[in-house]
């Protein structure tokens, strides 16, 4: 199977490998679109399984949202014909069969999910299922990975300290300009020159968004801009739709962003 490409920025690869060897749960902290998910996919493809001894551990990803409850993660009974049948949720499946379970944007989910995570995230590695009365011991190949975005929007939804300290924390951020240019060039196919200009634009737009309380321009949106250019869209237009739009609806902000784009492109 093809392992997704990932450009290391610091020592995150070694740290994750070490956490995997000790089966320590991992927390990825960083803004949206900076490579956290791609990183997990990459690592899953390269880690050595304890059971088979070869590269590649299955990965179960759950994108958390406001309506996600513990039951969504653990499982529920479904009606089929005349019976109710227990259906494992993604977390239970991962714990049973041995996979990395990646809970993306965990702070968005309902509070009752924390309880479920706690028991899996310490040395016991058990998952109690109330509804069936089971106590599942996690498979040797199971690992819990969570992520969250520490911006203004999570101030009131922060992870509790007692949850946080169960995890090894890796900090992610947008890569420095030269690396970001390399990533954009690789993923979208644009030439080096344009990739560097896009990275410079992103740096300036991020300085802009600091003043506007919006999320910064992500590496992902830079790649999108590049992909549009490769499809023949005019560069300024591609940047407008991929980058400016992401900065929110404030018309002054958008005008400033378009100016930033305009002055950086030939």
């Amino acid at each position: 199977m093809h392992t997704p490409w990932y450009q290391p920025v610091a020592d995150e690869v070694q740290l994750f490998e070490a956490a995997w060897s000790a089966r320590l749960p991992v927390l990825l902290k960083g803004p949206t679109g900076c490579g956290k998910t791609r990183f997990v996919e990459h690592m899953a493809g390269n880690l050595i399984s304890a059971k088979t001894g070869i590269k590649g551990v299955p990965l179960v990803t759950v994108s958390c949202h406001e309506d996600l409850t513990a039951n969504d993660l653990v499982g529920r009974h479904l009606l089929q014909h005349d019976q109710t049948i227990w259906n494992d949720g993604p977390l239970t499946r991962a714990a049973r069969t041995g996979a990395i379970c990646y809970l993306d944007e965990i702070v968005e989910a309902r509070r009752d999910t924390t309880v479920v995570i706690h028991s899996l995230a310490d040395h016991r590695r058990v998952l109690p299922i109330e509804k069936t009365g089971e106590m599942i011991q996690a498979d040797p190949d199971f690992l819990l990975v969570i992520s969250y975005n520490p911006g203004y929007q999570t101030v009131l939804k922060d992870l509790k300290p007692s949850t946080r300290q169960r995890f090894v924390s890796l900090e992610f951020n947008y890569p420095p300009a030269t690396l970001e240019a390399a990533i954009v060039a690789h993923e979208s196919g644009v030439g080096e020159d344009l990739a560097h200009r896009l990275a410079a634009i992103a740096e300036r737009l991020r300085a802009l968004s600091d003043h506007g309380l919006t999320d910064g321009v992500s590496t992902r949106s830079l790649i999108h801009a590049g992909q549009l250019v490769m499809q023949g869209i005019e560069t300024r237009r591609a940047c407008e739709v991929a980058l400016t739009a992401a900065l929110g609806d404030d018309p002054e902000m958008q005008k400033a962003a378009n100016d930033v784009i305009d002055i950086h492109l030939p």
Binding site: E252, M253, A257, V260
Partner: peptide, 14 residues
Amino acid sequence: MSLGLLACALDSPG
């Protein structure tokens, strides 16, 4: 004014 924001983006806030 958007040009004030442009100045911020170019590291000259204020």
